[in-house]
Design a protein around this nucleic acid. Structure first.
Lengths: 225, 225
DNA sequence: ATGATCTATCGTCACCGCGACGATAACCCA
DNA sequence: TGGGTTATCGTCGCGGTGACGATAGATCAT
């Protein structure tokens, strides 16, 4: 082995769509270094934990989410020698996509956590700006060729809600008619329910559930490149 | 910080196409654990090294490649508590795509390294079977929507050679006429040179260089899913 | 009540990229 | 000189998409 040892941390990019804006859950640091600055939620890997265990534990602690519904995957690792002034720390970034939680982080132990639109999150602690940016880019790319956009939605949702997810994540408008044709025409993406949504303006919309499909062939196309 | 410290290693999935088969560079271990077994080339991260530095150093040591031409990217990290019997070791997998080297690993310090077709590489040390599989899958997915297949080619190559790369990586045959239309019709993928290739059978083929394009819109399509 | 407005949903049409495949070009070899 | 082989160019039909019109069914203002 070697005497060159690392502390290993897991940092989380937890994304949701709130009020039409793609937002990340951030915590305000109460201790040095970067005291008072915003940072990604995270923590060190404990003995007998695998990386995904640590990430799951942190996600539950921060959001109070139960196991179902959300999506959690590994992003990348960061280990620049000077990324943490306390010493050699390797951080494994993870990406979580969660629905807009009704209760603002009920049960969160880090009281200083809150949602921030990703458009105005400059100046995070450590190299978390970069990790957040790569998480956002991963999410943008992945909803293109997978059904993961539904992970941002509650268990039942309308086509309009799903379109709102795409528009918030991509920052672009989509044609409602072509979008409807695309998602309802992809087998296994949306499972129609019996119920309609009432109370809003306009014609009531049908409610759907997530279907078994995970891939999107052919992909949803972004307007830009 | 914590007393729960890790050794951090970088392991490399180095892929090339040799004799029509997608192949990986593997080393035979000379010391326990897994003495005598095949493994991915790799090593520990040294002080003042970032992950990509370690990966680049290992790649040069194993292949003798200079900086140009190849592709190197991070794959994912693995840190199961029992993945290494010596203790807590986190491994950061990396993927390298290199041309078929004329000299079989000239200058390699690990004398026991050799190319193996990925189809028969079962039984690697540690969790390297999984890392290799994920590297191969990443390569298969990425040549679909990027121009990375050219990283497997020498500086100048023909359309047929490039098609052979796709066929070897995907394990499927592609129509030569449609393939030619696709790659020559994508702006910035291939830059034609003045020269033709001679000596082979059939009509001489034009030589191309890699162009500046990195993305492939729309993507190259696999026959299967 | 009644029309305006809003959203959901269904249709139409032209275009473009792709798969299938025919045709031609330019080399080697016997 | 012809046959085999590979490279390259064309053609045609289909399916998915973008642009956009039309209809359904609710709420809202007056």
């Amino acid at each position: 082995m070697r005497g060159n040892l690392f502390a290993v941390a897991v940092d989380l990019v937890i994304l949701t769509v709130r009020a039409g804006a793609l937002s990340a859950l951030l915590v305000r640091r109460g201790v040095p270094p970067f005291e008072g600055a915003l940072a990604l939620p995270g923590g060190f890997v404990l003995p007998n934990e695998d990386l995904i265990d640590t990430a799951t534990r942190e996600l539950v602690e921060e959001t109070g989410l139960t196991v179902a519904g959300h999506h959690l995957e590994q992003l990348a690792s960061y280990a620049a020698p000077d990324r943490d002034p306390r010493g050699r720390v390797l951080s494994v970034g993870h990406l979580a996509l969660v629905p807009d939680l009704p209760e603002p982080q009920a049960g969160s132990d880090a009281a200083a956590s809150a949602w921030h639109p990703v458009a105005d999150t400059a100046g995070l602690a450590f190299d978390h700006d970069r990790i957040l940016a790569e998480g956002v880019e991963r999410a943008r790319a992945k909803i293109e060729y997978t059904t993961l956009a539904a992970a941002f939605c509650p268990p039942e949702f309308t086509v309009s809600q799903l379109r709102g997810i795409y528009e918030a994540v991509w920052g672009a408008e989509l044609d409602p008619r072509n979008f409807q044709r695309k998602v309802t025409g992809t087998p296994g993406f949306l499972v129609p329910t019996e119920r309609l949504v009432t109370g809003g303006r306009g014609r009531p919309a049908q409610l759907f559930r997530r279907g078994p499909a995970t891939a999107l062939h052919p992909p949803m196309l972004r307007a830009d490149a």
